[in-house]
């Protein structure tokens, strides 16, 4: 393997997309089915989702070689990425409108606009929630269709990514529910507390599920007959990724928040645990994206190990367009 084709921006994009999807999804569920009537408490979580999508899209664009050509995505193809882009754009618009609906509470000059949109805020959130689910699934499915990479090409991956996305969305909502820009009523605050309470339980379930899926996936690869998968899994379990996997993802990102959630009180459960969940989710995307092991061709590793890279000194030493030296 010469280098990772997808670099950190893409991992971040996948994480932020999933996060936004998770927030939208959970917000919609809670707003429409669990505690209806307190749409305003989701203003800040949706704002976070909006920001996450925007940053994610920026990362995506940054990673593109010719970002100007991005528009073609909407014109031509049927590829999964195209659908991902469509979902993201829809959720960007939905979340933006949703926020505008509540901006008027804080910024008076926005009030007329906000009042116009507010009535449809809740149904809009439901639409956003649906596409949020699509985004979460898309991030995993997109990777899992790339069958050249055994570590990605498994049905477990979309499940893992979706669960992780909901879990991180959950954590983000816990951290932000009921805040600016909406001016929240007392009942709404109570509802927020209620939601928070439920979310704690939900996240416990999600974290446990994530642990199970993650370990099943990694350990089954470790025992797999596929050499490439085995090699990758080995890296996770007892190789160079092991400290990040066991220490970062499993312990700090899942087990500690789990313990904190279960112990369940104060700052530890309200702030530390969700933050750790977010970090764990981010780490997961990094590790998975970096585990782009492809079955090597005979001699490929030797070859790629020997040839130069764009970093070698001689690569930029001579420029055919420039002046002659002697």
């Amino acid at each position: 393997m010469k280098h990772h084709y997808w670099e950190p921006p893409i991992a971040l994009y996948l994480f932020l997309g999933g996060l936004a999807g998770g927030i939208m999804f959970l917000s919609a569920i809670f707003d429409s089915f669990v505690i209806p009537g307190h749409t305003d408490i989701f203003a800040l979580p949706v704002l976070i989702a909006f920001i996450a999508i925007c940053i994610g899209l920026v990362f995506l664009l940054v990673d593109l070689g010719q970002p100007g050509v991005f528009w073609r995505v909407f014109r031509t193809a049927k590829s999964i990425i195209k659908w991902g882009a469509v979902f993201l754009v829809i959720d960007t618009i939905v979340s933006m409108l949703f926020i505008v609906a509540f901006l008027g509470d804080s910024l008076t000059f926005m009030a007329p606009l906000s009042n116009l949109i507010k009535p449809i805020a809740s149904p809009m959130l439901l639409v956003g929630g649906f596409f949020g689910l699509c985004i979460m699934m898309y991030t995993g499915i997109m990777l899992s269709t790339l069958k050249a990479h055994v570590f990605w090409a498994t049905p477990a991956l979309p499940v893992l990514f979706t669960v992780s996305a909901i879990s991180t969305g959950c954590a983000a909502i816990v951290l932000s529910i009921g805040g600016w820009p909406a001016v929240v009523s007392l009942e709404s605050l109570e509802a927020a507390a209620e939601v928070n309470h439920i979310l704690h339980t939900v996240d416990i379930v999600l974290v446990v599920a994530e642990i199970i899926i993650l370990l099943t996936m990694v350990l089954s690869f470790l025992g797999a007959g596929n050499i490439t998968a085995k090699k990758a899994a080995k890296r996770w379990v007892c190789g160079s990724y092991a400290p990040l996997f066991w220490g970062g993802m499993v312990f700090a990102g899942l087990l500690i928040p789990l313990a904190l959630y279960v112990a369940g009180s104060g700052v530890a459960s309200a702030v530390v645990a969700p933050v750790l969940v977010l970090c764990g989710g981010c780490l997961l995307r990094f590790l998975v994206v970096n585990t782009d092991d492809r079955a090597p061709l005979p001699g490929e590793e030797r070859y790629m190990g020997r040839i130069a890279t764009h970093k070698n000194a001689f690569v930029k030493r001579w420029n055919y367009d420039g002046e002659n030296e002697f």
């Binding site: 010469k2 593109l64 010719q66 073609r72 990425i81």
Partner: peptide, 30 residues
């Protein structure tokens, strides 16, 4: 002309026979 260099095809190829350059000007890589 049509490639935005998202590199999904690069990752899709089981033979590793595609890539975008790291030397070319940052905004014109395909």
């Amino acid at each position: 002309k049509k490639c935005m260099s998202c590199k999904v095809c690069v990752n899709a190829c089981p033979y590793g026979m595609r890539d975008a350059s790291h030397i070319e000007s940052r905004l014109h890589r395909f």
